[in-house]
């Protein structure tokens, strides 16, 4: 599938749902004021909520490096995840991630607020379940179902069935992801074989540079450095990594499409599928 087609599908996902549901959304018992405390619940809620239903998101949601929906979030108020400011907004519902600060979540519950927590997504097949849950919480079940159907269909079209070239994910501090992580699943869906899985990495782990060199992957996919230098990210420019990239196609992880389990991961899958075709053409 071409990228332009994916984008148009996503656009249909984003806006088509709203049009189809106009007038029928906002059922009587749905929460009217929702605050989100996690980048990924921010995006799920932005995808599904009625205009005005989502009262605040995190600052990360408006950052185009980390958020696939930064434009959308730019118009929303933000909180910095402190119990005090969330409580003062008097939300009917708070959505948080499983790794949101425990002290904050417990405090909000003690204050009598309803807090719903979302586990991180480790598999593409978790995404429909997350959409369905957020849809149910927000009283937007029909919109969620439409999005799930579109996501499932698009993923089926994109998914490669034959395992292709060997790829390595290599991030700051020498970390990599195996198949039991969302990033690993994106690689597999795009038709790569992940060297981390060959070596027995499940989710995320440190990959010694020596093992990366010995594995000699067909393509190294590195993270994109954040502004403000760090020596954690400098390892992605180590001579060994540069040598593995030399004369070959190299890939980059665009964080905003990779970190959260939302339909936007399809952009990462199609970008990786394009990379795979380039690698295969060069072999």
């Amino acid at each position: 599938m071409r990228l332009s087609r994916v984008i148009s599908l996503l656009a249909a996902l984003l806006f088509g749902g709203a049009v189809a549901q106009a007038g029928t959304g906002w059922p009587g018992d749905a929460p009217r004021k929702v605050v989100s405390l996690n980048l990924c619940t921010d995006q799920l809620a932005m995808l599904l909520a009625e205009p005005g239903q989502l009262a605040a998101v995190t600052p990360l949601a408006a950052n185009p490096r980390s958020s696939a929906m930064a434009d959308h979030a730019a118009d929303l108020p933000v909180t910095h995840g402190r119990a005090e400011e969330v409580y003062l907004l008097a939300p009917d519902l708070v959505v948080a991630g499983q790794f949101t600060d425990r002290a904050t979540v417990d405090m909000l519950r003690r204050l009598g607020l309803r807090v719903e927590e979302f586990a991180p997504v480790y598999d593409l097949s978790d995404i429909p379940a997350r959409l369905a849950r957020m849809g149910a919480l927000l009283g937007q079940e029909a919109r969620a179902q439409a999005m799930i159907d579109a996501f499932t269909a698009d993923l089926a079209t994109l998914r490669a069935d034959t395992p292709g070239p060997r790829a390595a994910l290599y991030y700051a501090n020498g970390y990599t992801s195996g198949d039991a992580s969302l990033a690993g699943q994106i690689l597999v869906a795009a038709g790569f074989r992940n060297i981390a899985s060959e070596m027995g990495y499940g989710a995320i782990g440190a990959l010694p540079l020596e093992l990366l060199a010995m594995a000699a992957p067909d393509v190294v996919i590195t993270g994109r450095p954040y502004p403000g230098a760090s020596r954690s990210e400098a390892v992605m420019d180590h001579p060994v990594v540069s040598a593995l990239k030399r004369g070959r196609v190299a890939g980059t992880v665009t964080d905003r499409d990779w970190v959260c389990g939302t339909p936007h991961v399809l952009r990462a899958v199609s970008e990786m599928a394009r990379l795979r075709r380039k690698v295969e053409a060069g072999q």
Binding site: N173, Y226, P227, G228, S230, S232, E233, H238, V240
Partner: peptide, 22 residues
């Protein structure tokens, strides 16, 4: 620092390491 990784590097500067030097 505006870099999300910078804070993790406190340990390196306090304790030292030769991992992945070139």
């Amino acid at each position: 620092s505006q870099n999300p990784f910078a804070v993790n590097e406190i340990v390196f500067w306090m304790m030292g390491s030769l991992a992945d030097r070139s």
